[in-house]
């Protein structure tokens, strides 16, 4: 099981086995939305804030 440190709260975040770079995941501890910046090595960053023109 791969984990990485949440940049918001320092908790361990479990990285799903099928994770992709630039995928969004949530920290189970603090709920922060995170982006997987790289997989090797695993690096997380806070996901960008939702902007007004985001949507479908």
């Amino acid at each position: 099981m791969t984990t990485a440190t949440c940049p918001e709260c320092d908790a361990d975040v479990v990285i799903p086995a099928d994770a992709m770079e630039n995928e969004l995941i949530s920290c189970a501890e603090c709920g922060a939305e995170l982006e997987i910046i790289s997989l090797n090595p695993v690096e997380l960053d806070l996901a960008p804030e939702v902007e007004e023109d985001w949507g479908e």
């Binding site: 099928d18 992709m20 630039n22 995928e23 969004l24 982006e35 960008p48 985001w54």
Partner: peptide, 14 residues
């Protein structure tokens, strides 16, 4: 072309 990978993009790539 994506902003980031969400569930939909993952499903489409698969």
């Amino acid at each position: 072309l994506i902003t980031h990978v969400r569930a939909e993009e993952k499903l489409l790539i698969s």
